[in-house]
Simulated scan of single mutants.
Amino acid sequence: MATDDFGQGINVAALLDAPDAATLARNLANGIASRSILRFASASARAAALTGVSAPTAGMHSYLEDTQRLYFYTGSVWRQVSSLTQQGSVNLSWTNANTASVTVTFPFAFASTPNVFVNINSGNGAVARWSCRAYQITATNFVAFLYAADAASLTSGSAIPVQWLASLT
Score class of each variant (00 low, 15 high):
34 S>L: 05
147 Y>N: 11
96 N>S: 14
18 A>Q: 10
154 L>K: 05
99 T>D: 11
28 L>E: 04
22 A>Y: 07
154 L>C: 03
152 A>Q: 08
16 L>E: 12
157 G>K: 03
35 R>P: 00
55 A>S: 15
13 A>I: 09
71 Y>A: 01
80 Q>K: 14
55 A>Q: 13
37 I>Y: 01
127 V>N: 07
69 R>E: 04
149 A>W: 08
127 V>E: 12
18 A>Y: 08
107 P>H: 00
1 M>T: 05
140 T>R: 10
67 T>E: 10
135 Y>M: 06
147 Y>S: 12
61 H>D: 11
161 P>N: 03
26 R>Y: 14
133 R>I: 10
91 N>M: 07
54 S>C: 06
10 I>Y: 03
62 S>P: 09
6 F>T: 13
66 D>E: 13
78 W>D: 01
116 V>W: 07
64 L>F: 02
143 V>G: 02
22 A>K: 09
27 N>S: 08
166 A>W: 00
108 F>D: 04
129 R>Y: 13
55 A>P: 00
158 S>V: 11
122 S>E: 08
133 R>T: 15
46 R>A: 15
132 C>H: 06
64 L>H: 00
151 A>E: 06
41 A>L: 05
108 F>K: 09
57 T>A: 14
108 F>V: 08
126 A>K: 12
62 S>I: 07
26 R>E: 15
136 Q>N: 12
77 V>N: 14
41 A>C: 03
146 L>S: 02
25 A>E: 01
122 S>C: 04
34 S>A: 09
85 T>G: 05
159 A>P: 00
131 S>Y: 05
88 G>D: 02
66 D>I: 06
159 A>L: 15
76 S>L: 13
87 Q>H: 07
103 T>Y: 01
45 A>P: 01
101 S>M: 06
103 T>A: 12
75 G>S: 07
107 P>R: 00
42 S>H: 04
64 L>D: 10
37 I>A: 09
70 L>V: 08
124 N>W: 11
82 S>Q: 12
11 N>E: 14
60 M>D: 08
110 F>H: 07
26 R>F: 15
25 A>T: 08
72 F>R: 10
93 S>Q: 04
1 M>S: 07
144 A>Y: 03
6 F>G: 12
124 N>I: 14
3 T>E: 14
164 W>C: 03
110 F>R: 15
96 N>K: 02
161 P>S: 04
82 S>I: 11
89 S>F: 05
97 A>I: 02
54 S>F: 08
8 Q>I: 00
